[in-house]
Nucleic acid binder design. Sequence first.
DNA 1: AATTAACCGAGACGGTACGTCTGGTCTTTAA
DNA 2: TTAAAGACCAGACGTACCGTCTCGGTTAATT
Lengths: 195, 195, 195, 195
Amino acid sequence: MHKKPDPARRSERSRQAILQAARELVTEVGYAKLSIEAIAARAGVGKQTIYRWWRSKGAVVFDSFLALSEDTQGMALPDTGDIEADLKTVMRATVAEFADPAFEAPIRALNMEIVADPELAAQYRDKLAGPVDEAKKERLRSAQRAGQIAEDADLDLALELLYAPVYQRWLLRTGPLTPEYADALVDAVLRALRP
Amino acid sequence: MHKKPDPARRSERSRQAILQAARELVTEVGYAKLSIEAIAARAGVGKQTIYRWWRSKGAVVFDSFLALSEDTQGMALPDTGDIEADLKTVMRATVAEFADPAFEAPIRALNMEIVADPELAAQYRDKLAGPVDEAKKERLRSAQRAGQIAEDADLDLALELLYAPVYQRWLLRTGPLTPEYADALVDAVLRALRP
Amino acid sequence: MHKKPDPARRSERSRQAILQAARELVTEVGYAKLSIEAIAARAGVGKQTIYRWWRSKGAVVFDSFLALSEDTQGMALPDTGDIEADLKTVMRATVAEFADPAFEAPIRALNMEIVADPELAAQYRDKLAGPVDEAKKERLRSAQRAGQIAEDADLDLALELLYAPVYQRWLLRTGPLTPEYADALVDAVLRALRP
Amino acid sequence: MHKKPDPARRSERSRQAILQAARELVTEVGYAKLSIEAIAARAGVGKQTIYRWWRSKGAVVFDSFLALSEDTQGMALPDTGDIEADLKTVMRATVAEFADPAFEAPIRALNMEIVADPELAAQYRDKLAGPVDEAKKERLRSAQRAGQIAEDADLDLALELLYAPVYQRWLLRTGPLTPEYADALVDAVLRALRP
DNA sequence: AATTAACCGAGACGGTACGTCTGGTCTTTAA
DNA sequence: TTAAAGACCAGACGTACCGTCTCGGTTAATT
């Protein structure tokens, strides 16, 4: 019979050290060359302590990003009343973030994990993407109330039309991520959403 | 000094055996648990023969899919004169293909490779995605000539608006891939492209 | 500072459970594969309780045998007046005991411990071998008084001549342990000890 | 299915390095704390190379001693015509060898292995003990021819009477190993073997 | 009766080593 | 020269135990 570990006895110090080590190593050697052995060594922790609390290397890396963005919660998008200007601001920022080489390696690692592991994908949706998407939809609803977007527009689809092209370009490296691209994207999507 | 292998001397029988073994093993054990060792054993081939001709596990898997779709070349999209109907036909087919569980494992493996390895991504663009995209753009150009789409529309962006949402939904498992979804997507994109 | 445990507070129930578990496990999995972890689990006892009272795995196993043979104390050898007959009786019994496959594993384990650990060897001499050897020497002294053995014979050496060959045969598996062998041994040793 | 390695392809260089490393480490850290991991590291060899050719840690250590004494073969005992003097010379040397603290650790390790593993015990008999015992018996036969030992004496038993007591004293640390002890032993055994 | 100090079961912890698996290189033999 | 075969060095895998530690919960002997 398999006994589950008792979470009450979990060492917070070890947990933090492991997550930090994972974050550091992903940026240093990349996700593919990352080993649990190295994480344990860097964190000054026995390997078993990792295996006790995480299912896989991916779960550790995933949690290390979760922990990072726990303070990103509750943010709201700018609302100047001009949906076009606001969206362009947001999308230009998004595009710039993706283009930042410092985030390249870890975010790509995170995405590989999510693609490969449905369970992590679910966690990602619930804990990271979900709240952010809700904030984005709230801004779009505000635009609906202002009559800038059709009342019957499918906001989930709208979000996908806005973000999926950027995501795909970045993930598959199929094109440059420039501010002009962000603007063109917003223009096109707003045309599709016009009342 | 390192001598490059002479492609003329390459054993076609071994190459085919390796590609087939790779294809079989990807579907059987998944990409993550696939090993060069296992491919060599299944193909009845020395490991060196694999290392001589491919850079990495990913390159072998990638080639094994290339070989499969070599006959998919030169296809053209339907052109009944009604861009909306034609696109809905195509997108419904695309959505159905993605939803097919039989292709799930290998296609996901292929995408993981492309995401992780920029060189394979380039090959993918040139040899697989490129020709298909060109055919799709050709259909859109035909619609432009027919006045169904704005003359100055950015066709690359148009393709991304059509396909990226589907790709993202599938890759991140963020939503169901239904015919209704395909139709809604086409409707939205055509609104964005209207003259 | 390190505080020694207070023997008065020792749980007799735990002690017995540990010794019994050790005995069972030695016969089941052999001494080499025996672990303190397994003993603790089988005995339903915390690991610390073992470490508190014993220095090593060997010490536990050793004690578990000590406990078994605590009732063997105070026995005396047969004395019919005929040293040859008596010794043959005793040596035949000894040989039979060694040949019994049921005792093979645990006794071998005990011997490995004694060979490896001088401190346990000392305990063994004092608590197990010593009394038995004294009884054997007493029988030889009786034979000396009866004039069947030289008065100046070295009885320690005599015991070694009798028992070491049997012990060696058993330990190194260098030959069969038969009643005939026991008789031949007694004959030879008695020739060496003749007045 | 399990494939046996091909001995023809075995690397002699690796074999020697492993045996030497094993010999060094046994004397440095003792048998109990010896690890295959350490042997591989010291020998500059992959662990698999050890597991490929040896069943266990014990087998490696055993072989490392075998290799050492391969040149000890074919030796003969002194034969001055005086069996008592010759035996005392030999037994004093044997006793001195056992008492040498430099050989203590490795020889004890070797014996633990032989005691624990019947297969190694068989190898030990055939390759190490056998030839030496034959040489000893040859000397005794010579004494038989000279009329110093009974013609019908059991020479195997004679050897055991001579060597087992020394072996037991050393193994169980039950007494000192002095030249006087060697002499007393020879005296006693010769009395037992007298014609 | 309340306090208190030790033992107790339990099990997490930092570690070491296990025996296996794979990566990528090198060598041998045959075609 | 290429290929099959497979030994080699290297090192990560996930597991088993080590011996230490901390946690609540008895238990027994003082207060």
